[in-house]
């Protein structure tokens, strides 16, 4: 029996190895043919002309994620402080399930609402020829990472020992000063973990932004149609021929994306480890 359970446990390890090995094996051939520098730093992605440079995709993913973090983290952080410290019981009882509902909504639904509400709105507000843009993708991503940031920060804030806050209050600090100058710094590694998790979510999201970002492999600009690393794969995966250089290049994008994600995971583990030590 023990052997059987050990095998079950090792299955997870096996899957990770399998995924890693297959991604590397299928990602390498195209990089070899195109050349690592031309692949990573080439500015043009045009499958028709056999040009596969993914610099615009990488930069779009970086800018898009940064934008989502800049908008999503403050809103998420303040909501978490509200939930953990300041909220009246009734308000918290309503808001908490609402946040977990936000987390559960499928990404295509976010994409659909973005497509029908956000995109037309941006087009008329900013007077653009088309609203499908990096800005639309950033806004959708910001909403999508909100629940993970809120719930992780809230957990961290709630774990702050009551004595810290009581001491601060007894010394004459107001409640608000206590939240921001005592509780939040004490929970900083948990909040950092929340931000890193949010980054991971934003980097990995594909379907929702495929519906609002326009999907042209331009260099990123807020009002331009752009293609992310994720959507770079998804937009062509169904149309590329098995064994063609185009399909192999898509696997190479997958490998690059996988490396990004592993880097973020390593960062997350580092932050969480520091939290345990605190």
């Amino acid at each position: 029996m023990q052997l059987l359970f050990t095998l079950c446990g090792l299955a997870a390890v096996g899957f990770v190895l399998l995924i890693t090995v297959y991604l590397i094996l299928s990602g390498i051939p195209a990089i070899r043919k195109i050349g690592l520098a031309d692949f990573l730093f080439g500015k043009t992605w045009a499958a028709g002309r056999d040009q596969y440079g993914i610099l615009p995709l990488i930069l779009t993913s970086v800018y898009g994620t940064a934008g989502a973090i800049v908008i999503g983290v403050p809103v998420g952080f303040f909501t978490a402080v509200f939930l953990a410290k300041a909220a009246p019981k009734k308000a918290a009882a309503i808001l908490r399930p609402a946040v977990s509902l936000l987390a559960g909504i499928p990404s295509v639904v976010y994409g659909l609402v973005g497509m029908c509400v956000l995109v037309p709105m941006l087009r008329s507000l900013l007077d653009l020829p088309a609203g499908d843009s990096l800005l639309a993708a950033i806004l959708v991503l910001a909403v999508m990472i909100l629940p993970s940031i809120i719930s992780l920060s809230e957990t961290a804030l709630e774990a702050v020992p009551k004595e810290y806050e009581e001491a601060s209050l007894a010394l004459g600090a107001t409640e608000l000063e206590t939240y921001f100058r005592v509780s939040a710094p004490a929970a900083r590694s948990g909040i950092a973990a929340a931000v890193v998790l949010g980054i991971g979510r934003a980097v990995g999201e594909a379907m929702a932004i495929m519906m609002v970002a326009g999907n042209v492999a331009n260099m990123p600009a807020l009002t331009r149609s752009v293609r992310f690393l994720t959507t770079g794969i998804s937009i062509e995966l169904n149309y590329s021929q098995d064994g063609s250089l185009q399909r192999q290049a898509l696997f190479s994008i997958g490998l690059v994306l996988f490396l990004f994600i592993m880097l973020i995971n390593a960062l997350l583990n580092l932050v969480l480890k520091r939290e345990k030590e605190d």
Binding site: A12, F15, L18, I19, L23, G204, L237, F251, L257, F258
Partner: peptide, 30 residues
């Protein structure tokens, strides 16, 4: 073993679905 399995499980949880899609296409479909 425990550390390896827990690390693997966290890694699986952090991999985005488009990567699973690629692996599915490579491993299961092909």
């Amino acid at each position: 073993f425990v550390t390896a399995i827990e690390f693997a499980s966290e890694t699986l949880a952090g991999i985005p679905s488009i990567i699973y899609a690629l692996v599915g296409v490579i491993v299961f479909c092909t």
